[in-house]
Nucleic acid binder design. Structure first.
Ligand SMILES: NC(=O)c1ccc[n+]([C@@H]2O[C@H](COP(=O)([O-])OP(=O)(O)OC[C@H]3O[C@@H](n4cnc5c(N)ncnc54)[C@H](O)[C@@H]3O)[C@@H](O)[C@H]2O)c1
Ligand SMILES: NC(=O)c1ccc[n+]([C@@H]2O[C@H](COP(=O)([O-])OP(=O)(O)OC[C@H]3O[C@@H](n4cnc5c(N)ncnc54)[C@H](O)[C@@H]3O)[C@@H](O)[C@H]2O)c1
Lengths: 262, 262
DNA sequence: ACGACTTTGTGCAAACGTTCACAAGGGCGT
DNA sequence: ACGCCCTTGTGAACGTTTGCACAAAGTCGT
């Protein structure tokens, strides 16, 4: 979590872990509001958000003492307070770079706009894609990144390009003035301090699930491999990845480059 | 993170935080292997993975004492050990439920198969979609969930349906024998103990970014709203969400249902 | 008007995670 | 064969997060 060591100069300093949960509370609150529920207790809201109620109360206490003892929280009021804390009382223009499978899915995603995030521009470098319409947005050339960012005062960028282009795109976004980046490419992005990067990596999530799935399966079996012996260094790779497939590491890896030899 | 309180009966008990980073290390290691680099020090690998080198060493030490003092780690060997720990020496069949924007993007995603995750079935309930081909997979009817799961021994399921269907789909997956679920729908899923759920929520990531972006912007300005006074309870919602848009909460919320009144 | 009941807000301790700093260990040059 | 130098592995300090448990505070019924 602590990409930037929290140089927090802000108000009281709300814990990162709390910030990460506020959107979940907000979602639960909207669901309650939709059902015309005016008041909710910490127990109920916690259950809806899938967290411990003490944790929820402590989280909310960081925003202030909203909530009435003996009653609970006013749903409407809390929606407003949480939204305000998250900075959702204003609209956030967003640029999406990369209009491939994922970029298109994102552009078509309704939940995007429903929280005040508006697509300011959708960019790609493929001439075959530039100019096409996706979800009421005409795909613009990647050459216009700087223009798109600065002319709309965009501060949030989404990277949905292949891994190989991600760092380059990132650099250009940052140079153009973007300070928050959501990265879908499986690469560790290098950014100057002051820029916030969050990553979403499907592959990592699956691997974490695989670990737990394996744990469940391997109730008992510790047959040690003959590996322990052959520790000699080699220059080739290939006898591993016994996944049966040949395509092993493809478009996924190949970057990461930067600081290995520094 | 601690969805399940880690009833860890397994080996030494590797911390969740470490597990979450292993895939990142693995990616960096593959990149090194591609460049025919045989040995890497903790400093170099840590830089490539974007973490502190002490943390990396501690993480790896949980797997065992691979690595040679004065030299570093054998890339190839470490790839094998990390893969083994994550359970990636075997293939994991996966079912994807929901072949909409996101489901299609996932099916087309190469990084999916490149780590040993194979799509066993792609399911949807829309008759217009069932039967079509997506990335060499024929979309099957959602009615066949149970069959698809049990006939292939699938233990990992991906939910890419709208929020309203997610819990229902989840229940059916679990009933069919799935024990690991990757959920893209913006809902808190309710699962019996023993089932592992991980969620990916784009909207939440953007909201976290918005919070930090706002922090940076609001260097100084604490104009308190007139809200403090009007704490009366109400039954309507609508004057909030001053996002300018009308579409406010749409397909996003509306579920979460379950345990609110429990 | 008051007391019983409900629920918040928080002090505190334990669990977990990160980072520092260094001793132990091993290769490599001489 | 020895000692220098480099890097690992980890003990210990520190910070963060979680969860318990309860006093403070307010509501609601009578
Ligand atoms: N598809 C998925 O489900 C999925 C899931 C997780 C992660 N990812 C990652 O997201 C990224 C995109 O995936 P995808 O499936 O959409 O890939 P894709 O190949 O379908 O789309 C990538 C798009 O980026 C464009 N592009 C390439 N270089 C560019 C540049 N320098 N500037 C602007 N645009 C550029 C390409 O023209 C292409 O249209 C990849 O890094 C992938 O690993 C994808
Ligand atoms: N598109 C995105 O970029 C994106 C990003 C983040 C999260 N999400 C979430 O992912 C989910 C899917 O998004 P999407 O854009 O692909 O939506 P979509 O509407 O394009 O696709 C949903 C698909 O699920 C199918 N479906 C509905 N009920 C089903 C059921 N009971 N069983 C099987 N299939 C069923 C529908 O027929 C449809 O094809 C949504 O919950 C959305 O909030 C989407």
């Amino acid at each position: 979590m602590p990409r930037r060591p929290a140089s927090a100069t802000g108000s009281p300093g709300i814990p990162e872990a709390t910030i990460a949960r506020l959107p979940v509370y907000l979602r639960a609150l909207y669901a309650l509001a939709d059902r015309s529920i005016a008041t909710v207790s910490s127990d109920e809201l916690a259950a809806a958000a899938g967290v411990n109620s003490a944790k929820l109360r402590k989280d909310l206490s960081h925003l202030g003492s909203y909530g009435t003892r003996g009653v609970g929280y006013d749903v409407e009021y809390l929606v407003y307070q949480v939204s305000r804390e998250l900075g959702l009382t204003q609209d956030w223009p967003v640029v999406i770079v990369g209009a491939g499978n994922l970029g298109r899915a994102l552009a078509n995603y309704g939940g995007f706009a429903s929280r005040g995030f508006r697509i300011a521009a959708l960019l790609d470098c493929d001439p075959a894609v530039v100019g096409t319409e996706i979800a009421q947005h005409t795909v613009r050339s990647a050459a216009e990144i700087e223009d798109a960012v600065s002319s709309h005062g965009v501060s949030i960028g989404v990277i949905a390009t292949p891994a190989a282009s991600a760092q380059h795109v990132c650099d250009r976004l940052v140079a153009a003035g973007v300070t928050s980046i959501l990265n879908f490419a499986p690469v560790v992005l290098n950014v100057p301090s002051g820029v916030d990067v969050r990553k979403v990596d499907l592959s990592i999530e699956l691997q974490i699930l695989a670990f737990h799935a394996q744990r469940r399966t391997v109730v008992a079996s510790s047959s040690e491999q003959s590996w322990q012996a052959r520790r000699a260094r080699r220059k080739t790779i290939g006898e591993f990845a016994d996944s049966g497939g040949a395509d092993g590491l493809d478009a996924d890896t190949g970057v990461e480059a930067q600081a290995v030899g520094t």
